[in-house]
Design a protein around this nucleic acid. Sequence first.
RNA 1: GGCCCUAUCGUCUAAUGGUUAGGACACUGCGUUCUCAACGCAGGAAUCGGGGUUCAAUCCCCCGUGGGGCUACCA
Length: 478
Amino acid sequence: MKVITRFAPSPTGYLHIGGLRTALFSYLWAKKNRGAFRLRIEDTDQKREVEGATKHLIHLLHRLGLKPDGDILVQSQRSAAGIYRKQAHELVARGHAYHCYCTPERLEKLRIQHERRKQPSRYDGTCRSLAPDSIREHEQKGTPYVIRLKIPDTTELIEAKDGIHGTVRFDAATLTDAILLKSDGFPTYHLASVVDDHEQHVTHVIRGEEWLPSLPLHTLLYDYFKYQTPQFYHLPLILNPDRSKLSKRQGHVSVEWYLEQGYLKEALINYVAFLGWNPGDDREIFSLAELIKNFELEQINKAGAVFSKDKLDWYNAWYVKNTLAPKPPKELARTLEPFLPEHTDERRIGVFNLFFERIRNLRELAELSGFLRELPDYEPSLLIFKKSTTEKTSSGLAAAERYFHAEAEPWTAITLELGLKKITEEHGLSFGDVFWPVRVALSGLAASPSPTDLAAYLGKKETVVRIGRAVKMLERAE
RNA sequence: GGCCCUAUCGUCUAAUGGUUAGGACACUGCGUUCUCAACGCAGGAAUCGGGGUUCAAUCCCCCGUGGGGCUACCA
């Protein structure tokens, strides 16, 4: 049988990290089995409608390489076509659901009462067995109603199977008659997802663990509809550092934010794949293709995983060094463009080469390279290396100035380094007397790339100017 | 409160009824070095508690405890 998975987000305007992992695992399992990965938009809550969110999401999935197969199912459209309403009424006709005319106010009162008495909060079943007369009366008056699922009156435990957690048993007496169809005619998640998973022939439902408590409800619906029940996999939650469910309040949770900061999609995908899954050995670096090959639903963990920015940083630094750096210049420049918008391609690559070994994300390129554009103010004392003296620094700087001034072509990091080393030796100085002050002169910073790399990037003219300025500063300071 | 899930270094995790409990991130130290980074080497760091089963339990079972999720006409 062909494996069909799906990703079914509600269009909130951004993709949550947890959503990315759900989409990724669903995608991986489908692709590993040469099946299909479907996309469905769960927009049945008009109050949460976000303009343009669906288009944006589809674009993002493509960008990440998680391209959905086939048509995209949009629940609001199916709802408008009356599909869910029809299914809900079918259930009513078969005695598995009923109209409920209770007002939201009454329900709210009930809820507060339960809470105060520390009782389980369940619907009290008022409309479950309404007399035919009173139903007729409501119909005539046109009282708004919802359709509720009738949880069976049984002492038997309702069993639901999950591929990660095994068989989970629920006491029917603790389950509530959940609303299937809202009074506005839109379905709730429970109805819509079951109907649509069947419609899309989904074989494996992979979703977050927050859905596990409603699994018995869904199992019941599959039975009542006489649908083939898919296999369920409830993924362990991704957690904040304090082990609560990953949330906006404690950090950034949107994939878009990480992309904007210059986290590569490869790093994001690789890291997120390892939140709850591992290949069973020590390997940690996996491309999307390798993930497809190695992914197994059976290898998924049960316990929640804390999202670690440090580890993501490590992954991203690895991908910057090992996959971005070797890319052809044109491609590299294109990736760099949003992070160094005011540079030419050549300068972008130049800046990248200067810093790619010390950044965690591409955003840092702009921050770290600011001194190239404008030399920051610095104390003259910074020019003197801790193992050097003012005299040695002065002569080192002067020698370097003469050298750079005289040096013609080629003005490259390699020749400059050889040249600078040569004059250091000729003057009987150590590197700390020459390289350090030259580096400070060019960067104005205590920590930076090497002086010859900087000189190569800055060019002869600017190099000589900056060293000249340092020489004068040192003279004045004496 | 009720229901459900869960438990190996600080974090992500591996492994097994008998192991010096392995790796990665982070951290610390050393090396390299003009600085920072990168890199290399080294180090500290874990089986939640109590009962069982067993010759033997981190692993299997039970009970606690901790943590989390759900408990909407949201998804």
